Simulated scan of single mutants.
Amino acid sequence: MIGAALLLLALEPPPAPPPPASLAVAPLRFAPPVGEPMTYRVTSRRRARDGSMASYTLVYALQWERAGRGVQLAATLRRIESDARPELVQALTGLLRPLIGQTISYLVAADGGRVDMIDPDAQWARVLGKVQSMGAGAGQGEAKQVAGLLASLPPAERDKLATADIRALVAPANPALADGASDLKVEQAGNRRTITRIERPAAAGGPDARPPIEIATSWTIDTATGLILGERRATWVAGENGSERRLVEERIRDLAAGDPR
C-alpha cells in the first residue's frame, strides 16, 4: 500500500524480494470475504543504536467487493502506531498524515494471481499532491524528499511498490510463494497452511566482514480464501564471542476479521 511504501522509503530502501518458494501440498483458491470488513496491520521493527527495538505499525481497514470477473479491494489507512521515541514518531506520523483516511483501490484478478491499482495515475496524483502540499506548508524536508523519490520512480516501479503489501496478502500473487524452489517446510492442518523458510546468506570476508545473519520467514495461509493471515520475517545476527544471536529487524503482517479498533 502507499502508506507502507512511504514507510519503507522513510526508514530505508525496500529490500530485494526473496527468492521464489513453492505453494506445494494442495491447490489454493481465491475467495476473499466479499462485503465483510477486515483489519490489516503492517509492522516494521528495527534495532536502534542504543540497542532497543522500535516498531512502526500501519493499521488499514480493508473491504472486498466484486468487480466484473475479479475483485476490488479498498484499503484505507486508519492510523499509525509506534513505540519509538516521541520525536521519531512525530516525524513519521507527520510524513504519513496526509494518507490517513485516504482510500486506495486495487483490482485483483479472479484467481488472485494479479494485483493492480485502479486508475493509478489519478491515485498517485492525489497522494503526491497531498504529500507535497504538507511538505511545502510545514517546511518538512522529509516530506519533500519522499515526494521527490516517489515522483522520480518509473511508473512500473512506483506501482509495484504501492501494491507490495497487497501482493503479500494474496497468496497466489505473493512473489515469495511462486512455484519453483524447494527450500521450505510446509505443514497443513485443516484450512491452515504454514510455510517456513530459513535463509543463511553467505557472509563476505575480509576486513569489512560482518557477523553471519539468519533470516527466518513464516507464512500462515487460509486455503479456503487464498489470503495470508500472518507473515513474520525476522533477521538475526550471530553474537560475538559465543554470545546469543540478536534480532536486528522484523517485518510482521497480520490480517483479521472486523473493523480496526
Score class of each variant (00 low, 15 high):
residue 179 D to C: 02
residue 202 A to W: 10
residue 137 G to W: 03
residue 182 S to F: 09
residue 134 M to P: 01
residue 211 P to W: 09
residue 133 S to F: 06
residue 217 T to Y: 06
residue 195 I to K: 04
residue 213 I to F: 03
residue 128 L to G: 02
residue 198 I to A: 12
residue 190 G to V: 10
residue 175 P to L: 04
residue 196 T to G: 14
residue 150 L to G: 00
residue 164 A to D: 12
residue 134 M to W: 10
residue 124 W to Q: 00
residue 139 G to N: 04
residue 187 E to F: 06
residue 160 K to M: 10
residue 198 I to R: 11
residue 136 A to I: 12
residue 158 R to C: 02
residue 198 I to N: 12
residue 194 T to M: 02
residue 141 G to M: 12
residue 140 Q to L: 12
residue 143 A to D: 00
residue 154 P to S: 04
residue 125 A to H: 08
residue 178 A to Q: 14
residue 164 A to G: 08
residue 193 R to K: 13
residue 191 N to W: 06
residue 144 K to H: 10
residue 188 Q to G: 05
residue 138 A to Q: 14
residue 128 L to I: 13
residue 196 T to Q: 12
residue 170 V to M: 05
residue 217 T to C: 07
residue 132 Q to G: 06
residue 174 N to C: 12
residue 114 R to Y: 06
residue 194 T to Q: 06
residue 153 L to Y: 03
residue 216 A to R: 15
residue 164 A to H: 09
residue 202 A to R: 15
residue 111 D to E: 11
residue 137 G to C: 05
residue 178 A to T: 11
residue 162 A to K: 00
residue 142 E to L: 15
residue 188 Q to M: 14
residue 150 L to R: 00
residue 211 P to D: 07
residue 186 V to F: 00
residue 134 M to F: 12
residue 209 A to W: 01
residue 138 A to D: 12
residue 186 V to H: 01
residue 155 P to M: 05
residue 139 G to P: 02
residue 206 G to A: 07
residue 219 W to A: 03
residue 193 R to H: 03
residue 196 T to W: 04
residue 141 G to L: 14
residue 193 R to I: 04
residue 114 R to P: 00
residue 203 A to W: 09
residue 128 L to C: 03
residue 130 K to G: 13
residue 192 R to Y: 02
residue 130 K to I: 10
residue 117 M to R: 04
residue 220 T to H: 13
residue 150 L to F: 00
residue 113 G to H: 01
residue 185 K to H: 13
residue 164 A to W: 11
residue 200 R to K: 13
residue 109 A to Y: 06
residue 138 A to F: 10
residue 163 T to Q: 07
residue 134 M to C: 09
residue 153 L to C: 03
residue 187 E to R: 13
residue 157 E to Y: 01
residue 180 G to A: 08
residue 201 P to Q: 10
residue 199 E to Q: 15
residue 149 L to T: 14
residue 180 G to I: 09
residue 191 N to K: 14
